[in-house]
Design a protein around this nucleic acid. Sequence first.
DNA 1: GCCGCTCCTTACCATTTGGTAAGTAGTGTG
DNA 2: CACACTACTTACCAAATGGTAAGGAGCGGC
Lengths: 197, 197
Amino acid sequence: MTDTRERFIEAAIPVFAERGFYGASIAAIANALPFSKQALLHHFGSKERLYGEVLARISTSLMATLDSTAADNETASIKATFQKILDYSLDYPDSTTLLMRELLDNRRRASSAHVWHLKPFLETLTRTVEDQIPQPVSRSSALCFCYQILGAINYYAVSGPTLAGIYGTAAHRKIKSGYPTQLGVLIDAGLSAIKGT
Amino acid sequence: MTDTRERFIEAAIPVFAERGFYGASIAAIANALPFSKQALLHHFGSKERLYGEVLARISTSLMATLDSTAADNETASIKATFQKILDYSLDYPDSTTLLMRELLDNRRRASSAHVWHLKPFLETLTRTVEDQIPQPVSRSSALCFCYQILGAINYYAVSGPTLAGIYGTAAHRKIKSGYPTQLGVLIDAGLSAIKGT
DNA sequence: GCCGCTCCTTACCATTTGGTAAGTAGTGTG
DNA sequence: CACACTACTTACCAAATGGTAAGGAGCGGC
């Protein structure tokens, strides 16, 4: 059944997110389901391969978020795009954490599967931004801008526990409520700066 | 000798950065020096404790960077402060990577030592920004701003291999050269937005 | 009825893990 | 010289790791 595969991938996401590739054991992942460790190995062959499929799954759903925005070409604003990315990151913190971990890991791991998976995402995002700007903009400066905003979003999305730990949950809630607005401001400002270049 | 301790901490940084807390084995760390694994355990008692000392070391040096800026009160501009953080992050990618990993890990690990270590850093940074702005600014919006820029910086600092992998080293160098300028623009814009609030 | 296939199980294994126990070399200190 | 202390070693260990081997249950095709 392909259904069991899906369940394994689904179950693997929080485990990989929480403990990282090394900290996550395939036994722990399998134990989240009523299957043995070997059932997992039967379907995926190795931990590395399962991990790759998890990354593929995540990047696909991330792309889907982006596509739906790109398709909405009536007033497909860049702000809305980034807002959707922010929403996704906050809705699926495990996936966000996992992508962030991969960003740190792929300095080492040969597979580094998500590099290729993230590529179309980044390119679509960059293109969306370029298209939105009337003036011709250098590809690298548009990418730079995207990456900065992306970084701000992901870093923030992943920082919930830390911020709550440092400032307390009340203050954290206040920060949280103000964040989208400030992000919007940052995007506006960054965009106008790019246009000015 | 305290010297050996220092050497262990120094040797641990790249290992923890590269493979994470779980992926790093104390044997691998010790092998980077002409000592046995038990020499390490003799000095630090446990892997967890070594890790804590590594984090403390890093946050101290990060704070030092910040302090030197804060002391320069002639025209201690916020931009210069963030520029120094960017420089630090690029100069010590291992430390940056490690702090980022801790950000992801402390959702789970009880110790989460760096939370307390990062707190003075964040507060000093926020205060520096507040002081720079004539108008009274809400603490949380200043923090929000700082965190966004911090996120952009750290995310970027850690993304070198990924960006080079996706776009090739040549394109990456181009992005790299343009980044500080665009970051400055982002800071300027974000600051004026805060003032306007 | 039997072959082959998928899905999943129990057994098993070599390796690595963090950590303990015990002992040794060296260095003061009385 | 004896004692204690630090710095480090080798020897050892239980537990967990990813992965292999082999087999069983169910099922469709012939």
